[in-house]
């Protein structure tokens, strides 16, 4: 009896491990193709790099933030790919990080799930100047991924259907 239980336990582990590996491979392959798609959308801007933000949907709201530098005399394009999102999220772009109470909301993107969305630094600068009523420009931006709560999500034991990622590819005008 003891041996049978051990055997069953090991079987379960093997199945679980194999399934995890398969799902992981599939997930990574999808990310790679989404990165390629997002990169294509950058043109004619020059590719500068990418940042994949991974997360697990939980029963409560989460925020993940990515800081991006904007240098003088350079225009940037950001390509967001949401095709690895099992649920929708909101993207908010700010001039300061999330600890700053006086930060300015420059752009909100809803409905990213299943899509590729482009944002350019020129529109963010226009919003910034209008809000500040100044001639200044953005030296960096903070991209906040607002990960919406999912009722029934298993917070401590995430499943593949609760895992998500946003692919962000950045480009600059040469």
């Amino acid at each position: 009896m003891k041996k049978t239980l051990t055997l069953l336990g090991l079987f379960s582990f093997a199945i679980l491990f194999a399934q995890t590996a398969t799902n992981l491979t599939e997930f990574k392959e999808n990310i790679a193709s989404q990165k390629a798609e997002a990169k294509t959308q950058l043109k004619p801007y020059r590719f500068d790099g990418s940042k994949v933000t991974y997360f697990n949907f939980k029963t409560y709201k989460q925020v993940k933030e990515v800081e991006i530098y904007l240098f003088n005399n350079t225009d940037y394009r950001f390509s967001f790919n949401g095709k690895s999102l099992p649920n929708d999220i909101t993207i908010e772009i700010y001039d300061k990080d999330k600890t700053q109470g006086d930060r300015i909301l420059l752009k909100t993107i809803d409905g990213l799930q299943g899509k590729n969305v482009l944002v350019e630094s020129s529109e963010l600068n226009d919003t910034y100047r209008a809000a500040k009523n100044s001639k200044g420009r953005l030296k960096r931006v903070f991209v906040d991924y607002i990960i919406t709560p999912v009722p029934g999500a298993v917070n401590k034991k995430p499943t593949m259907k609760e895992r998500g990622a946003v692919v962000l590819v950045m480009g600059y005008k040469n």
């Binding site: 933000t53 997360f55 993940k64 933030e65 800081e67 991006i68 350079t74």
Partner: peptide, 25 residues
């Protein structure tokens, strides 16, 4: 690890972008 990025992250510019900015300057 793969499935959970840090809460706060950043992107650093590529050496080509930095060189390009300096050249434009």
């Amino acid at each position: 690890d793969l499935f959970e990025s840090p809460e706060i992250d950043y992107h650093l510019p590529s050496p080509l972008q930095v060189a390009s900015i300096f050249k434009k300057s």
